[in-house]
Design a protein around this nucleic acid. Structure first.
Lengths: 201, 201
DNA sequence: CCTTTTTTCTGACATTTGTCATAACCGGCT
DNA sequence: AGCCGGTTATGACAAATGTCAGAAAAAAGG
């Protein structure tokens, strides 16, 4: 019997998945969580074989959890289940040593299969991602990313500088560089591009 | 037997819902669609009693479908099922005469109940929305909204003017007005606010 | 018919943004 | 030791943005 926990903030999907997976006769859903902290304590308490995690959840994201699991050397194997095929997410997940990365656009039978394969120690990666996405690293330097992140929240250059303890001119340069590197014409376009690639998280 | 069609672009949720709803012995899922156009032709072909529609789908949104159903006086009753509690979405749905508006954060048993109630001619509206949201209309004039929409795509004022056949100065004024009305300090903040309320769709 | 709102526009102004050149400092890599 | 990339910074300049005042025509509502 494969013991799993499920973390997904939308009740409808969470409930539906739990019901469907429970129907598989080699899978047992030992816990369902609606946010990151809840699933973390379930993992510690129940010590499941596999954890299926959504990325975008309150309190802690699925990626945060994957990194915590890695850092604390917990035995559970992580499968990330997300809507978004964002390179940045995918790479962070790989670095956190997850065993599976699936999109919500896969069928539930595939998900059950993936759980079995991961339980057997294999890795299951969405095929489009593993190919297309590897060579699409974020072109921004760490500082440039920080500036973009704050800009994405609507801050003006002055305030960004104040928050990062940088001079106005420096921030202006980073912004300009970032816009150039992303091939955008305006700040807003640059933010859209970076967001869609998952480079602002 | 209540005959329904389901439209939802994420295969996982779509499949899971279809399976769960089929287990109810008074509900029959006669069609599943992954985009707006597909569900439209299913409605015309199968003439189901109820249509459960996601909003954000390719080709046509659930709101587009609801409006088409209303315009063509089709007999099907529409339930909108969405992630987002956005006032703008909700109001558009109400104007299109939908029978149900539910969030994906409800349980599947509630969904099944909602389908039964709607089949009986009752309306089922998410309670938080029906109260809180009524008095939160978009403060922007139609023109201001159009300007914001284009700005949200990263266009500069010049280009926005060119697209809408407005002078540069006029666009600048609309932008300024919009930022003011939304209580923002920058264009980016204004876009964020408007997006989160569903006023840019 | 009168009033109000919306749409449209102009001009003026201060500020912000984006680009570019230039330069110093640091850490790694070869 | 020398080079490269990231970080930090300045100054200068053009362009874009945001604000304000004022004004006229059209549409909507009473």
């Amino acid at each position: 019997m494969i013991r799993i926990v499920l973390a997904e903030d939308q009740k409808l999907l969470r409930g539906a998945l739990a019901t469907l997976l429970s129907l598989e006769d080699d899978i047992e859903v030992v816990g369902q969580a609606e946010n990151g902290e809840e699933v973390m304590s379930m993992i510690q308490q129940y010590e499941p074989d596999v954890a299926v995690l959504d990325i975008e959840m309150p309190l802690k994201t699925g990626l945060d959890i994957a990194e915590l699991v890695q850092k604390n050397k917990l035995a559970v194997r992580v499968i990330i289940l997300t809507t978004f095929a964002r390179p940045g997410y995918f790479q962070r997940a790989m670095q956190a040593g997850v065993y599976g990365y699936l999109l919500k656009d896969t069928g539930s039978e595939e998900l059950a299969d993936a759980i079995r394969r991961v339980y057997d120690g294999k890795r299951v990666i969405n095929s489009e991602l593993s190919l297309a996405v590897w060579d699409d690293p974020c072109p921004l330097s760490p500082r440039e990313r920080e500036v973009m992140k704050l800009a994405a929240q609507g801050l003006v250059l002055q305030d960004i500088g104040a928050q990062l303890f940088l001079s106005y001119g420096t921030v202006r340069n980073y912004m300009s560089e970032a816009i150039g590197k992303l091939g955008a014409n305006t700040r807003i376009e640059a933010i859209d591009i970076a967001r869609s690639k998952g480079w602002l998280d």
